[in-house]
């Protein structure tokens, strides 16, 4: 790797002489970016460290980066009973189904709305965009979901609302915009139907878009806790991972600050290391998704640079 770097430097150096100012900027750049990147990762390392520390050590000595004696105690507790694996199964299912379904709908809609000859496209675009301007708010939404749709204690209450957003559809439109209209025209000349054109000609060109928007959707599902907190009561034993994490973290807080605390014994309140172990397990896989889609993702953001 170091070799490569030298090569790069030599190359650019051979073309134009590197000035002192370039050296300063570059040196400072390496320094600052390294520092900043470390700062981004640092809190995660502390969490991982804490999750391997025993509770008594945390209480006595505080949180440290590297535990004196590593213990798997907290992880054993989290894994105990197997509930966490069921949560995994649920979250993975929701993420996969939601991303695939959402992506399909968003891609179709985005394509249709970008077809210059489609007379309804402005109307429908506005219909969709309007929803991001005006929302009814929490109370009417909650009552609708529970009283009209009867989605309380149903995973659909978590699954459905995250399928798409106006912003993702606009993003998809921008991607499609970059594809020349002639491709659609040529498909028409060949006598293909709209669906056929979309699947055969357009979709293959949308790979960066699908990767980018797919990643957004997947993140949305994986990191979901809010809908769950509204709609999944304790009747549902298996909860999405982040909500499980949210519960573990906030239970202690809720009890400490209320009269209700009198009804609960201290031993039932989750410990610090347990929280951290849950955090590590609940976050884990999604972080490793990024390197796989990085290539497309960065390209994707470029096209969709403008957030709606």
């Amino acid at each position: 790797m170091a070799k490569n770097k030298d090569l790069d430097l030599m190359e650019s150096g051979s073309k134009v002489k590197i000035g002192i100012s370039d050296m300063i900027i570059r040196g400072f750049g390496y320094f600052f970016v390294t520092l900043y990147a470390l700062a981004c990762v640092f809190p995660f390392l502390i969490i991982i460290g804490t999750s391997f520390t025993s509770e008594t050590v945390i209480r006595a000595e505080g949180v440290k980066l590297i535990p004196k004696e590593a213990t798997l105690q907290a992880y054993e507790m989290v894994v105990h009973g197997g509930l966490i694996w069921k949560s995994y199964g649920l979250t993975i299912t929701l993420t996969l189904c939601g991303t695939l379904l959402g992506l399909s709908i968003i891609a179709m809609t985005g394509y249709a709305l970008q077809r210059k000859d489609f007379p309804l496209r402005n109307g429908i675009s506005f219909y969709i965009y309007f929803t991001s301007l005006f929302s009814a708010g929490l109370a009417p939404y909650y009552l609708l979901m529970t009283q009209t749709y009867h989605l309380k204690d149903s995973y659909f209450a978590v699954f459905l609302p995250l399928l798409m957003s106006p912003w993702l559809i606009i993003l998809m439109k921008n991607f499609v915009k970059a594809i020349p209209h002639e491709i659609t025209e040529s498909g028409k000349i060949d006598g293909a139907g709209d669906m056929r054109i979309f699947i055969d000609l357009i979709l293959p060109m949308l790979k960066p878009a699908l990767a980018t928007i797919g990643l957004f959707l997947a993140l949305g599902y994986w990191n979901e806790w809010y809908q769950s907190s509204l709609f999944l009561s304790s009747r549902i034993a298996v909860k999405p991972l982040q909500f499980q994490l949210y519960k573990v973290v906030n239970e202690a807080q809720a009890l400490k600050n209320s009269v209700a605390g009198q009804y609960v014994s201290v031993s039932d309140i989750p410990t610090e290391s347990l929280k951290m172990a849950t955090a590590v397990l609940a976050t884990g896989p999604i972080v490793f998704l990024y390197p796989f889609v990085q290539k497309y993702f960065i390209g994707g953001i470029t096209v969709g640079a403008v957030k709606g």
């Binding site: 299912t93 929701l94 996969l96 189904c97 939601g98 399909s104 009867h150 149903s154 995973y155 009747r235």
Partner: peptide, 23 residues
């Protein structure tokens, strides 16, 4: 693509199936 849509619906349907049954 088609399969994924159908699967998506079906799989999610079944994962929450027990639940909607209860409702």
């Amino acid at each position: 693509l088609c399969a994924s849509m159908v699967l998506g619906l079906a799989a999610c349907g079944s994962s929450a199936g027990s639940d909607s049954g209860a409702t």
